[in-house]
Computed example of a mutant assay.
Amino acid sequence: MKVIKRVAVVVATACVFASVIGASAPASANEPPPRTFKHYVALGDSSVAAPVVGGWDPGLCLRGIKRYPTELQKRLKAEGVNLMNDTTTLTEVECTGALTLNLSRYAGIVALPSSLRELESVPVGVAQGLEQGKIMQADSVKSDTDLVTISIGANDLWKYVDLTKPCDPFQAFIAALLAPALEKRLVATIEDVAGRASPNAVIAVTGYVSLKRAEVPGGCWLFPWQPTVGDTLNRAIKDAVGNASAHEGSSNKSQRKIRFVDIAAAAENHVGPPVYQGAFSLNPTDGIANHPTAEGVDMYADAIADVLKAAG
């Protein structure tokens, strides 16, 4: 009986000792190390290129010197964030005037409403200077690309819709008519990009700064229930991200994350200098009319960085 008691005491002591050691071990011991993006590719239109901001960057795509991809890179390399480091490579192929057709060949498969079918033959982005189907921005996304940002869609509407007239009921009607086809084009584009990227890539798709009713003199008092053109554009992008993410999530082989970055909300909550140039740009080095300012570039970078931190 004494032997049994001594054994029991030894076992109990060992269990207590083990539990104490386990409790004192840092919680991070069982957690995977934080990821570090290796290859970042930026795709999109002039909302990425930021024409004139900080000056002109040489090239045909009318890029400014200060753009959100490089500003995002600074934020993700910051101490305490460490989602990028000095070995991370950045590939920028954004171009002023770009359409979904400049990003992916698959975007052109989606037909528009018959009354607007002529948009199928619209030329590619003004500054892209490439024939449709030859070179696509998505071609820059490789199997080692583990971060992609996409800002696209506004120019697909621009042929028929004036985004600077958010309260015009005719403009809003045309935008609503185009929205379902635009959403499908965006889904095709996002899925094409995701399929080219690393299996564990993060795809961050941004919305746009949207002219809000409060910014229009007198507000939209005639049609207060009608979504603005910007609202319709951002909804199409957000829904496309949701659909593409659902498709991606149904694949057991993929761990890609597709996330929406709500730029309109970020702009609405922003406190400080203007993030968007109005119809008449007064500062020739701070963005062209109807485009982000230097402050807007920072806002884009901050909003995307927040989403990426949450995505892990």
Rank of each mutant, 00 (worst) to 15 (best):
V202Y: 03
E120D: 08
V48H: 04
I190K: 02
L99E: 09
Y106M: 10
V110Y: 00
R185Y: 02
W221C: 13
Q277T: 11
D162W: 08
T87P: 05
W221T: 15
L178K: 05
K142A: 07
P69C: 05
A107D: 07
K212E: 15
G207R: 12
V161P: 08
P217W: 09
K38G: 11
V81A: 13
V9I: 06
F280E: 10
A267Y: 13
R35K: 15
F260C: 03
N82L: 08
A264T: 01
L90N: 07
A127I: 13
C167K: 14
D306G: 00
V209E: 07
V161N: 04
K253H: 14
S47H: 12
G219F: 09
V124P: 00
D45W: 12
D144P: 05
G287L: 11
V122C: 03
K184L: 08
V161M: 09
S19L: 05
K134R: 08
Y300V: 09
G278H: 04
A138R: 00
R105E: 14
Y106V: 11
T91P: 04
I150S: 00
A311L: 09
Y40I: 02
S198I: 01
D298Q: 15
N234Q: 09
A14S: 03
R256K: 10
N82K: 10
N234C: 04
W225M: 15
C220S: 12
L116S: 12
V93K: 02
A42G: 03
D57Y: 03
K66Y: 12
A18G: 05
G272I: 13
A42S: 02
G133R: 09
N252I: 14
K77A: 15
D168V: 02
L62D: 15
L43F: 01
E31K: 13
L163D: 07
T285S: 08
V148N: 02
Y40C: 10
G312T: 01
V193P: 09
G64Q: 00
T91D: 03
R67C: 04
A172F: 13
G296L: 06
A214P: 04
A29Q: 10
S143K: 14
Y160Q: 07
H291W: 00
A289C: 04
A311S: 07
I4K: 02
E183F: 06
W158G: 10
P51A: 05
M136T: 11
R105Q: 12
V205C: 05
F170Y: 14
C61W: 02
P284F: 13
D45P: 01
T91R: 00
H39F: 08
C15V: 13
L233E: 10
E191D: 11
P51N: 09
S115Y: 11
A42Y: 03
L112Q: 09
R117H: 05
E118L: 12
G249M: 11
Q137M: 12
E268W: 04
K309E: 04
V216W: 03
A188H: 07
I150H: 00
G195R: 08
D302C: 13
L186D: 10
A111W: 06
D192A: 12
A138M: 09
P58K: 06
D45A: 06
V10T: 04
A240N: 07
V16G: 00
P34D: 01
K142Q: 13
P292E: 03
L101E: 09
G249R: 10
S121Y: 11
A188E: 11
D86T: 02
L116E: 14
N102V: 11
K2M: 14
D192N: 14
V193C: 13
S28A: 00
